[in-house]
Design a protein around this nucleic acid. Structure first.
Length: 735
DNA sequence: AGCACGCCGACT
DNA sequence: GTCGGCGTGCTC
């Protein structure tokens, strides 16, 4: 077809990244080449007074919009679609399922650079490295790069199969070059021989069974749940399955809950696989993330490691999706397009016809229920590698016990005994700062945040009172601002205070505190972890982040200082999270020759949750928790959607939700229960008043049908303009 | 979401 | 007399 032809009646249907749930129609750009008009290309369009980068969804010959009001698109930005038809249908499905505007959902699939309209240009980087067989790998292009020529010659003369010192010389030379940026870690297009896994560890029978089970499913959709305690060798299972996928020339997407776990796994994969591998997470620059995305999208890399947002990376040769620590709530996006990376990963694999492997020591109740219903296959790794024994649990009843700043005397004695044996102790408290509130002994004044329904937390080292919800700060007070005379006291415990106590009680021991405040600086977490592994640390103290990933083989005593707050949570997810936390923290400890001990301080030693978990294990806990959920009609037996609203004045969210309730009543809600409107558990945050409405139904279909008709009605509400509202389908956090 | 337009209070 | 507050409306 000639390029100069007026393209007749062609109308471009474009998804634009704005919170409007519809497509926008455009005339083709003036310099159009018809070959470019494929769904999945980016289109630069005029949008009101500004320009937007949208995605072409379809080309039609008609528009419901007034034809002479249509504007021509400015340019088609890609010569080939960046998203395949399968990717687009997944994103369409996700937009429908989460009831989120398609344009914004599509935007979430692209790295920022592409959203901004940057060219989709993959810069292939020079590379050389060792093949698994010890052979030198270098693409031709490198030989022409004068800078590297000398070194390349040197390396080539070092022989094709290096061993011993030659190998380590080579490796350190390579490392130096990598640091100077003279070579990149990216290998050339993967050759089948390089994809083969090397030096695989001998798998135990359970590992072999798990590996075989997933390999048997390659090439079709299936979900497997790998339940394996810390140290049971899940990563080895992943790697042997990945090796098989690579052998078939396919790509693997590995999703992890957070950045800090990526380097660890990256290291192990780099040692094992000689294919191109990329990782992507929020600490990389936009350019790096673009390159990683394109490298997968263009089939140049075979493995991508990444967090939640990596899920939508296009895969021309999809083979397998692995989602590690599948129970982790950070797989659920908590703002904007609130998708569950786990659930969408499964939908994606279904569309691609490939298997998904979910891994966890403490699978989510949803996944356990799916196993019970034979939707997922359960693969179990019951044993810790190297015959390490499981830790012993001890409930420490602290009622009426003497406490030293949150640490009971029996616990301190255990810490003493552990340190005396030159072993490490790990102490967990999920509250950072010095103390959660400051109180006046004279008049009862407490340090409240002016903008939130929350107390200001004492941060002694920074000498500030800080709100953990909006970030506002004020200097630490010396005198009560209310009565001017009363003595101000720190009430309650945070990690900073425990650190002080531990340093006072164990003056000759090294205490390291790991929380957001001590690990904010880049690389500081890694530095601390190294010290801990080198045995330079006696007591490790910290929050949440201790529960994730990192294993501490020198630790034989784990103490969880306060589990009671998790026992009586208002959110029904609380008990599941507590059980997962206990098992995960416990998993940090112990080794073959020294079983670990886990002490849980509680004032509720008879609590049934603790009893089931500690006497019968996580699976039994999950069974009984699921039983409770079933009786209450809660997920996964019921289905929920939460409408959250906030605004500057308290009446606005209430009015809005009342209008929404009216709309629901006019829409025949059927069996869908409407709970609320109620004030959010934290009714005011960052100066905004927050309310919510929970919709719940025994049938997912019914809930979604209601939402389908409710959302247009909400968009049309006049009150909707006065508030900030968002819909959370399958909420995991009811706050 | 942006970004305009539009109609009422304290300032160069 | 204007600068600017944020209510309301629109984006093909």
């Amino acid at each position: 077809m000639p390029n100069c032809d007026t393209p007749g009646n062609l109308i471009l249907k474009v998804a634009v990244p704005v919170p409007l749930d519809r497509l926008f129609d455009y005339l083709p750009p003036l310099d159009l080449r018809l070959s470019e008009l494929q769904p999945g290309v980016r289109v630069l369009v005029p949008f009101g007074k500004r320009q937007q980068v949208g995605v072409l969804m379809a080309v039609a010959d008609n528009s419901s919009f007034d034809r002479d009001k249509l504007k021509p698109a400015i340019a088609i930005l890609d010569t080939h679609p960046l998203l395949s038809a399968t990717d687009i249908s997944l994103l369409r499905w996700a937009a429908r399922y989460y009831h989120h505007p398609l344009g914004e959902v599509l935007a979430a699939a692209f790295p920022v650079a592409l959203r901004q309209g940057r060219p989709a240009l993959l810069q292939r980087q020079p590379y050389f490295g060792l093949s698994p067989q010890g052979r030198l790998v270098a693409p031709e292009q490198l030989r022409r790069a004068p800078k590297q020529q000398a070194l390349l010659t040197l390396l080539q003369t070092s022989g094709s199969a290096m061993t011993g010192t030659a190998l380590s010389t080579y490796k350190s030379a390579l490392k130096a070059l990598l640091e100077k940026g003279l070579v990149a870690e990216q290998a050339p297009v993967p050759a089948a021989e390089l994809a083969l896994a090397q030096a695989s560890l001998p798998a135990n029978p359970e590992q072999q069974a798990a590996i075989a089970a997933v390999i048997a499913k390659l090439g079709r959709f299936a979900v497997s749940l790998l339940e394996g305690v810390t140290g049971s060798g899940k990563t080895e299972v992943y790697m042997q399955i990945i090796a098989k996928v690579l052998e078939q020339g396919k790509q693997v997407l590995v999703l992890l809950p957070e950045i800090s776990l990526t380097p660890q796994l990256e290291q192990r994969f780099l040692q094992r696989f000689a294919v191109n591998m990329v990782s992507t997470h929020s600490k990389l620059t936009d350019k790096q993330r673009l390159q990683a995305w394109l490298s997968m999208q263009q089939g140049h890399s075979a493995i991508m490691l990444g967090t939640r947002s990596a899920l939508f990376t296009p895969l021309p040769r999809p083979g397998l999706i692995i989602l590690d620590e599948e129970h982790d709530s950070s797989f659920k996006q908590q703002e904007g397009f609130r998708f569950s990376a786990r659930d969408v990963a499964i939908a994606r694999a279904k569309g691609l016809g490939i298997p998904v492997l979910l891994g966890s020591a403490t699978p989510s109740l949803e996944s356990m229920a799916n196993v019970a219903q034979h939707r997922y296959q359960l693969l179990h790794l019951p044993n810790r590698a190297g015959n390490a024994t499981a830790p012993r649990f001890q409930l420490l009843d602290i009622r009426n016990k003497r406490m030293e700043a949150g640490l009971s005397e029996p616990l301190l004695a255990e810490v003493h005994a552990t340190l005396a044996k030159q072993q490490q102790a790990l102490i967990f408290l999920n509250r950072r700062g010095y103390a959660p509130v400051q109180i006046c002994h004279g008049c009862g004044w407490v340090s409240r945040c002016r903008r939130c329904d929350a107390n200001l937390v004492i941060h002694a080292a920074d000498r500030v009172l800080r709100c953990h919800h909006c970030g506002s700060e004020q200097p630490l007070l010396k005198h009560c601002p209310a009565c001017k005379t009363g003595e101000l006291q720190a009430l309650g415990l945070g990690t900073e205070r425990i650190e002080q106590t531990l340093e006072a009680v164990f003056p000759d021991k090294v205490v390291v505190r790991l929380d957001r405040d001590t690990t904010q600086r880049k690389g500081s977490l890694e530095q601390y972890l190294e010290q801990i592994h080198d045995g330079a640390v006696d007591i490790i103290l910290g929050t949440q982040m201790l529960a994730k990933g990192h294993h501490f083989p020198g630790v034989t005593l784990v103490a969880i200082l306060d589990i009671d707050s998790g026992l009586f949570s208002i959110d029904y997810h609380g008990s599941e999270r507590l059980a997962q936390l206990i098992v995960q923290v416990a998993g940090r400890a112990g080794r073959a020759d020294q079983p670990g001990k886990v002490i849980l301080q509680t004032r509720h030693p008879q609590h049934p949750l603790l009893d089931t978990l500690l006497s019968k294990g996580y699976r039994a806990f999950a069974q009984s928790a699921l039983q409770e959920r079933r009786q209450a009609g809660l997920p996964p037996f019921g289905h929920q959607a939460l409408l959250r609203v906030q605004a500057g004045k308290a009446e606005e969210p209430q009015q809005f939700l009342q209008a929404v309730c009216q709309a629901i009543n006019s829409l025949n809600p059927g069996k869908v229960q409407v709970l609320g409107p109620v004030a959010a558990p934290m009714a005011r945050r960052a100066g905004l008043f927050r309310f919510q409405l929970l919709l719940q139904s025994p049938q997912r279909k019914e809930l979604h049908q209601l939402l389908d008709s409710l959302l247009p009605a909400i968009y049309a509400l006049k009150d909707a303009k006065k508030v900030r509202w968002s819909l959370d389908v399958d909420p995991v956090d009811l706050y």
